[in-house]
Design a protein around this nucleic acid. Structure first.
Lengths: 254, 254
DNA sequence: TTTCGGCATTGATCCGGCTCAAGGCCCGTA
DNA sequence: TACGGGCCTTGAGCCGGATCAATGCCGAAA
């Protein structure tokens, strides 16, 4: 075979996709399927290595990952770095709605498939536009909270905590039921992880063997098995005790 | 005087506030001012040290900073850290719209004032709701892009670049015209900066004196003067050359 | 004025993670 | 079966930034 095999990957169910609420508004599953079709382009394949958008690509709409995985590459100063990953069910392009054009590259890590929600066709929703916007606002808000958590973790912690948090996050996001999967396949290179976390690739490698020796997880190539969720959560600093949330007596307002 | 002085700080103009588009929709400046008043609570004072929200505060609406400054404290693992700052014109609470309750603390760094946009009263906007939501989506998208850039910088760079990027960002955000101010007052402690950037307070201090010696900027207490914007931008890795954006020939889709 | 407490600076030392360098593994190809 | 290349792992040494400790500065209160 001169080309790599193009095995089909399982696609995320519509109900596990962040576009679901949006699709519902547009008539998914109802008699009104034609309306949905006119707004959402469904299940479009993207080959591994293909770029979904590059700097300068005009904004036409947002994407939802149906299967596979993507990475976002951004220019930070003089270097290009991995700044994000996108897994099935997640939306791509939310940060570009306002500006009108992409400033980064989004590239498929595997053979993948996506849906596209065209913003120029939104007027076809007519009176349902309000509900659509509501759903979009919810999705954006959820995403902002998630990004903030990841960002804080990446910024704050040492290499061990960062990697543990990353692995826990990926295990969760790769699983349709939103609980961390015990076994999954890492779609990205060690280099991507290192770049994303701001660590050296050697550090990633050493930590992984160390985690393995401690019986927390096992990586054989890209296949990951998590053996001890509790320890992984603890390492990642995710086991949060209830905070008393000490409220001091407020000073008098001016 | 037994209490600290309560000098009035200049408030950001409505047209420089992220709520502006939203307020316009709600009738700002039109005959319809009563509609605006029924949705937006205007110019509410918050004393230095007061907490706007704490973990558990239910979501009622978003806030816009009119004057002063705020910091967000989040529990990351076992520690509480500074995860965000909010300056005049910026919105607070976008990441909480979806979840219904705050998980962090937002605290005034100075005597400040805010507007609140109550979400329970939005129905009063009637047919203008679509435009309101459009404005909100734009604001959220803008904010996501901004957050992603800050996050990437914080994650990726060494201490010098991080601090330079931070100072450049603050200088820009504290200036109503969105260009970096040559002279401004840092409203937060060195400790807050260190915490936010994931660095030690001593490192911040050393870098600041170093920047000063190099003639890039001068800090006397909290008063900052930037002398060399070009160098600061360069240090921060913000001088981006145009990227050829090499698009490889895409592999055949499956 | 002195004292005090909070914040900032500066110095000395140590360690986590980067860099450089050398293998090792696995898969695709001949 | 052997070869080659991409990717990953492991080791040795070094350096940036953390930590510990001491001092300096400044505004508030007595």
């Amino acid at each position: 075979m001169t080309r790599r095999s193009c095995r089909r990957r399982p696609e995320v169910e519509c109900r596990d996709c962040e576009l679901f609420g949006i699709c519902q508004v547009a008539g998914l599953g109802s008699i009104d399927d034609s309306l949905l079709e006119s707004v959402v382009s469904r299940r479009w394949p993207v080959a591994r290595g293909d770029k979904l958008v590059t700097p300068g690509t005009p904004f036409r709409g947002i994407f939802a990952v149906k299967s596979g995985a993507f990475r976002t590459l951004s220019r930070i100063g003089q270097r290009v770095r991995v700044t994000d990953f996108h897994f099935p069910g997640e939306l791509i392009g939310l940060e570009t709605i306002e500006s009108g054009g992409y400033i980064h590259t989004v590239e498929a890590l595997d053979d993948s498939s996506i849906c596209e929600l065209g913003f120029s066709r939104l007027h076809r929703l007519g009176p349902r536009l309000v509900q659509f916007q509501e759903q979009l606002i919810q999705a954006m808000s959820r995403r902002m909270r998630h990004d903030q958590q990841l960002c804080a973790l990446a910024r704050a912690q040492n290499s061990e905590q960062r990697l543990a948090a990353f692995l826990y996050s990926v295990a969760t996001r790769l699983n349709p039921d939103q609980r961390p999967a015990a076994e999954f396949r890492l779609p990205m290179l060690r280099e991507d992880i290192a770049d994303y976390l701001g660590l050296a690739i050697e550090t990633i490698s050493r930590l992984l063997t160390q985690f393995s020796q401690r019986g927390i997880l096992h990586l054989r190539g890209r296949n990951a098995q998590i053996h001890d969720f509790k320890s992984l959560r603890a390492l990642a600093g995710l086991d949060v005790l209830v905070e008393p949330a000490g409220i001091e007596p407020p000073a008098e307002p001016c």
